[in-house]
Design a protein around this nucleic acid. Structure first.
Length: 472
RNA sequence: CGGGGAGUAGCGCAGUUUGGUUAGCGCGCCACGUUCGGGACGUGGAGGCCGGGAGUUCAAAUCUCCCCUCCCCGACCA
């Protein structure tokens, strides 16, 4: 009866649990080259759902998709001083191609501010061309020292938005709206991951930015994960790439640019925010498979499988992403645990007994226990059930975030509180020396907020509150 | 890059200290049968350049050197 645990329990060894669940839920494998990953179909389906939802919001924010090259001339990177300093240690550089040494080495993009800047400079001539709002879905390469599947890989998939504006105020507002209306809205509404929004301190800021907005989430081990960032680049890149325009008065002006991105790291965030000791718990809205109809056992005539196929067809017809598991040659318990491991939100079990009674057994992945519902009612009830699960996952995570966040007043207390979660304290009381002191304990200021939890304009705001934690 | 651990079948491991038949075990996989409402059982089978390279030796999974990869802890980051 008592089986060995399917996964290393989270409380025993959280990193091990993470590795286990990635393997056993068939999410990803390590690639052959250091730090690379193979994203398997089950996880890629979730990524495609994430892309679709983020993409729709990006378009609603007025940006258009385009595509820029993977290869960037090395000289581009060096044009912006902070940018090159920030990225050069982690660049992958091509020096030989076609059997010949290249005259100028080519960098594999770590991010595309530079190439896109080059083309923005061509495309923007007049104030009438602004704002210019671009986005691309792409892969980027950063040779990080330490990698961790989905969270920090040598190559990852992401979306990077790049915009140019006529005024600082417009650029600021746009970077903020990406943070709020695209990222936070997606993370909370679709991923069911509550996020803290704020700005980064000077030392945590993007290389080349004047201000970085971020969404920070708390994982089940109390550590923080930066889920997405939106940067105000000031005129740094506009100056480096000469992105300028003539204003209404005929005067030449430099643009104000922004950049913003979310990546496959969100997959790691989804896993670590919702997963439990039985496996993944995928929020219904991003689940590639929302419902699995599982044939418990069948008779010789195949009556149960036929009924299950019929149910699957009805659910699919009403827009539910549903899958049939009629593989009765495998033990029922095995299949049940496997679907739990994969975190499919709803499992509908159908066997001869259910069928005879005109029922089906329904199991929610976010709760323990089963309920029996009339088979005929299911098509009408599943959508509501999925919505309930979506909400429950969010509430669960939000309660955990609240419970593991402590208000403190000194760096020493912050160190203690951040051992298990987040600490909040006045940024004034931290200061430069405080950030050094926190760093010794592997802690960082994840973001700065206003006293009421809002997003500050910039680091000069009064009464900033620092959110302190351990991070991935 | 520094410190620690590890690479042997798809997964998890034993064997390495003290070189020596044909490299084992559990799970998984394939076939057949019995089972079947929470990880079934029996019988038979398939599957290994023992991470890679170089060396020592009559003989290397085992000893030496170099390299690669993974995991954990730091510094760097989406």
């Amino acid at each position: 009866m008592a089986q060995a645990p399917v996964l290393t329990p989270q409380a025993t060894d959280f990193p091990r649990w993470y590795q286990d669940v990635i393997t056993k839920a068939e999410l990803a494998d390590n690639g052959p080259v250091r730090g690379t990953m193979v994203i398997r179909p089950y996880a890629y389906a979730i990524w495609e759902r994430m892309q679709a939802e983020v993409d729709a919001r990006i378009k609603a924010a007025g940006a258009e998709n385009a595509y820029f090259p993977l290869f960037i001339p090395e000289s581009y990177l060096t044009r912006e001083a902070d940018h090159v300093e920030g990225f050069s240690p982690e660049l992958a550089v091509v020096t030989v191609a076609g059997g010949k040494e290249l005259e100028e080495p080519v960098v594999i993009r770590p991010t595309s501010e530079t190439v896109i800047g080059e083309f923005m400079a061509k495309w923007v001539q007049s104030y009438r061309d602004l704002p210019l709002r671009l986005n691309q879905w792409a892969n980027v390469v950063r040779w990080e020292m330490r990698t961790r599947i989905f969270l920090r890989t040598s190559e990852f998939l992401w979306q990077e938005g790049h915009t140019a504006h006529a005024s600082q105020q417009d650029a600021h507002r746009y970077a903020r709206s990406i943070l709020d209306d695209v990222y936070a809205d997606f993370m909370e509404g679709e991923l069911a991951v509550p996020v803290l929004r704020g700005i980064k301190t000077r030392r945590e800021r993007f290389a080349g930015a004047i201000n970085t907005f971020a969404c920070e989430a708390m994982m089940r081990d109390g550590k923080a994960l930066q889920m997405g960032t939106s940067h105000e680049l000031g005129q740094n890149f506009a100056r480096a790439f000469d992105i300028g325009f003539l204003d209404e008065t005929g005067a030449r002006q430099l643009c104000w640019t922004t950049s913003w991105g979310v990546s496959t790291r969100m997959m790691g965030g989804m896993i670590m925010c919702h997963g439990d000791d039985a496996g993944l718990r995928v929020p219904p809205r991003v689940a590639g498979t929302q419902v699995v109809v599982l044939v418990v056992r069948d008779d010789d005539a195949g009556t149960v499988s036929a009924a299950a196929r019929d149910l699957v067809a009805q659910l699919a017809g009403s827009g539910v992403r549903v899958r049939l598991d009629a593989d009765v040659s495998k033990a029922f318990g095995r299949r049940a645990t496997d679907w739990e491991l994969k975190g499919v939100p709803v499992r509908i079990e159908l066997g001869p007994r259910d069928l005879e009674a005109g029922d089906a057994t329904v199991v929610r992945r976010d709760q323990s226990g089963k309920s029996v519902l009339p088979l005929a009612e299911l098509p009408a009830r599943v959508a509501g059930l999925l919505a309930e699960i979506q909400t429950a996952l969010f509430e669960d995570a939000a309660a955990r975030l609240r419970g593991a966040t402590a208000d403190v007043s000194s760096v020493a207390d912050a160190r203690e509180a951040a051992a298990t979660g987040f600490a909040r304290m006045p940024f004034r009381a931290v200061g430069e020396s405080g950030e050094d002191e926190l760093a010794e304990a592997a802690l960082t200021v994840r973001c700065l907020q206003t006293a009421d939890g809002g997003v500050p304009t910039d680091e000069h705001d009064e009464d900033l509150v620092a959110i302190i934690g351990r991070s991935y």
